[in-house]
């Protein structure tokens, strides 16, 4: 049995689950930020996470690609622990090189873009494929050109990040994440730092991605996007999932008073 199948059998993970979280806890010192998160994101689906500031949304995303270590619970991506290997009922921390390799399969897009400011757009896109995947330069460039065309920025390959608008930078950041052929893409409020008229172009790229079958976990305040694109909607508050459901139904008819209150504020 492969490790993946073994994990799935052992923890009761659905075979098509791309992200599987059970009882995920995270504390910073005495402050417990995540208090037992359960969630499943099936491959090819889009999960949207909403919730007030400080509810732990970013922390949960960062746990998924192991930028933060869990304090408790388990988190599997494509049936594997990101930072551990399970042997004889124990979780062994994996070598850094293996952790890097697994992280490379999980793309992340940040609120503040975080493009490498000393590199051109093209260099941003080929850096990780060259260094992490050992891809030949020609291949990496060809791939980057295709991705830039896909986000509508073919003419910006030689530009530096600060020569681009916020919306363009975020589209480059998405292309950079895609250059690694990730199994899943995590978005942390990708449009929150953008001027209102630039939000649309980024959401359009994300919409196209979802339509192409990419698995996505999106923390967002764009309720319209969640309703239209999301397969499930998760409402978090104070480190727990208060309510989850099909976006359209949940937005039209929230069950919990906290969800109702939050939605009435952001809608």
């Amino acid at each position: 049995m492969t490790p993946k199948a073994e994990n799935q059998a052992r923890f009761g993970v659905a075979p098509d689950a791309m992200v599987f979280a059970r009882g995920v806890r995270k504390s910073y010192g005495p402050l417990e930020v995540l208090k037992g998160i359960d969630a499943t994101v099936p491959a090819g689906s889009v999960a949207c996470i909403i919730g007030p500031s400080g509810s732990g949304k970013s922390t949960f995303l960062r746990c998924i690609n192991h930028l933060e270590q869990l304090s408790g619970g388990i988190l599997l991506v494509d049936g594997e622990f990101v930072g551990y290997d399970l042997r004889d009922g124990k979780l062994y921390e994996v070598k850094n090189s293996l952790l890097c390799k697994r992280r490379a399969d999980i793309g992340m897009v940040f609120q503040s873009f975080n493009l490498f400011s000393h590199m051109t757009v093209m260099e941003n896109l080929i850096e990780a494929p060259l260094r992490v995947r050992g891809m030949p330069v020609g291949e990496a460039r060809a791939k980057a050109e295709i991705l830039l065309a896909r986000v509508g920025l073919s003419d910006k390959a030689a530009r530096y990040p600060r020569e681009l608008s916020g919306g363009q930078q975020q589209r480059v950041a998405i292309a950079r994440a895609l250059a690694m052929n990730p199994k899943v893409l995590l978005f942390d409020e990708p449009t929150s730092a953008l001027d209102p008229e630039l939000v649309g172009e980024v959401l359009q790229v994300m919409r196209d991605l979802a339509a192409s079958g990419m698995t996505m976990v999106v923390v967002t305040h764009e309720i319209g996007f969640a309703r239209e694109v999301g397969d499930q909607l998760i409402f978090m508050d104070q480190g727990v999932i208060v309510e989850r459901g099909v976006p359209r139904e949940m937005i039209a008819n929230p069950q919990s008073p906290r969800t109702r209150e939050f939605l009435s504020r952001v809608l």
């Binding site: 090189s97 890097c100 999980i106 940040f110 975080n114």
Partner: peptide
């Protein structure tokens, strides 16, 4: 954010 993005991409 720079090193965060880089480790997210799998750089060591």
């Amino acid at each position: 954010g720079q090193s965060e993005a880089a480790s997210g991409l799998g750089l060591s």
